[in-house]
Computed example of a mutant assay.
Amino acid sequence: MSVRRVPPEPGRVPAPTAVPTAVPRAVARAVPPFDPELGVVLAGLSKESREPVTPDNLQARQERDAATRPRPTAEDLRADGRFEVTEFRVPGPPDGPDVTLVSARPSGLAGPLPLLYYMHGGAMIMGNAWSVLPRILSEWALPLGLAVISVEYRLAPRTRYPGPLEDCYAGLVWAAGHAAELDIDADRIVIGGKSAGGGLAAALTLLTRDRGGPAPLGQLLLCPMLDDRNSTFSSHQMSGHGVWDLTSHTTVWKALLGDRYGATDLPPYAAPARATDLSGLPPAYIEVGSAEMFRDEDVAYANAIWQAGGQAELHVWPGAYHGFDGLAPRATITQDARNARTRWLQRLLGQSSTGNPPTG
């Protein structure tokens, strides 16, 4: 029997074909091996730190995270004068509260500087804008001459979609509109984030394209959380291995989406893997581990960008699990990953400063 395939409309790509959730048990048990250095770190993690997130313990996990996650002050972030740090309260989305932005830049650099507009991770239920800044400032802001704004978006389940994304959009619009005051270049803004923040970064890039908002120079998506459907092969293959499983994943998506969880008409701004039009996006850097649940959805997203005629640099780190770089900062593969991110940012910013179009 022959099957006639109808090509998609120009500039549009079909949504990735869902993999049946019933993965054969024999296949599901075969998983990519962990990198040896990462495996040692994983084996040493406490049982409590690997406990799945459930509806019953979600609030307790949030409270534990708030109590134990380091939250540097503005004075801490200034690092004896190496950085200029300012906190802003800016107008939030319609019918929403003001949004806090934490702005930081290397001291003494003449602007306007390019800006990394960053969303923290934490599965949409945890994390804060301050704790991610020490690493970002040391790895990127100082060596690359970048200004950084980290967004304190509202968390689920207290605030469901689209509240967190609208917070990020309101902050981006404000930052671009106050570029002169911030001494940043509004034409050289890179949107970035990790895990849940990577998903927000992808969604924000789609949203600002469709609303005609500030046009980013690039999007930095680190192990982004993109797909609410739990239908990829890796989401089942890697559940129970590493540090994140299907129970946790389902819990946090339900916390974010509420009654809209599982809806067939969920917009791509809620879960970017559902996007059918990835045309007109800036160059993307996408990375993920070969041994984590997000692998297949992130690879599919890069492929969909290519199919739409866009630019994406994809790194699948062999033997890496979710959040490997934070858990094993001294591992060789972590250093390789950090160097690759920095080189991509260098190329992107270098091309934009010479007037050449970024190539991703």
Results as ranks from 00 to 15, higher is better:
residue 4 R to G: 10
residue 5 R to D: 02
residue 10 P to I: 08
residue 11 G to V: 06
residue 17 T to I: 13
residue 18 A to Q: 12
residue 25 R to N: 05
residue 26 A to G: 08
residue 29 R to E: 14
residue 32 P to I: 03
residue 37 E to D: 13
residue 40 V to E: 15
residue 42 L to G: 01
residue 46 S to G: 14
residue 46 S to V: 12
residue 50 R to F: 02
residue 51 E to M: 12
residue 57 N to L: 11
residue 57 N to E: 04
residue 57 N to R: 12
residue 65 D to N: 13
residue 80 D to M: 11
residue 85 V to N: 05
residue 85 V to S: 05
residue 88 F to M: 07
residue 90 V to K: 09
residue 91 P to T: 11
residue 93 P to N: 13
residue 93 P to G: 10
residue 95 D to R: 15
residue 101 L to V: 10
residue 103 S to L: 15
residue 106 P to C: 07
residue 107 S to D: 04
residue 122 G to W: 10
residue 125 I to F: 04
residue 125 I to C: 07
residue 129 A to W: 10
residue 133 L to V: 14
residue 135 R to Q: 12
residue 139 E to Y: 06
residue 144 L to N: 09
residue 153 Y to E: 06
residue 159 T to M: 00
residue 160 R to W: 01
residue 162 P to W: 11
residue 162 P to C: 10
residue 165 L to E: 13
residue 166 E to R: 14
residue 168 C to A: 13
residue 175 A to R: 05
residue 176 A to K: 01
residue 183 D to A: 12
residue 186 A to N: 06
residue 193 G to D: 05
residue 196 A to N: 02
residue 199 G to N: 05
residue 200 L to V: 01
residue 212 G to V: 10
residue 214 P to E: 07
residue 216 P to S: 07
residue 222 L to Y: 01
residue 226 L to K: 02
residue 232 T to H: 07
residue 236 H to E: 03
residue 238 M to K: 00
residue 243 V to D: 01
residue 250 T to E: 11
residue 256 L to R: 14
residue 257 L to I: 03
residue 263 A to G: 12
residue 265 D to E: 15
residue 274 R to N: 09
residue 277 D to G: 01
residue 278 L to V: 06
residue 279 S to F: 05
residue 280 G to L: 08
residue 280 G to Q: 11
residue 281 L to E: 02
residue 283 P to I: 10
residue 284 A to M: 09
residue 285 Y to C: 01
residue 287 E to D: 15
residue 290 S to K: 00
residue 292 E to M: 03
residue 297 E to R: 09
residue 302 A to V: 00
residue 305 I to M: 14
residue 308 A to F: 07
residue 308 A to M: 03
residue 311 Q to I: 01
residue 318 P to A: 10
residue 318 P to G: 08
residue 319 G to M: 04
residue 321 Y to F: 15
residue 323 G to M: 07
residue 323 G to A: 13
residue 323 G to W: 07
residue 325 D to A: 10
residue 333 I to E: 08
residue 336 D to R: 15
residue 339 N to R: 14
residue 341 R to Y: 01
residue 348 L to C: 05
residue 351 Q to P: 01
residue 352 S to G: 06
residue 355 G to Q: 10
residue 355 G to I: 07
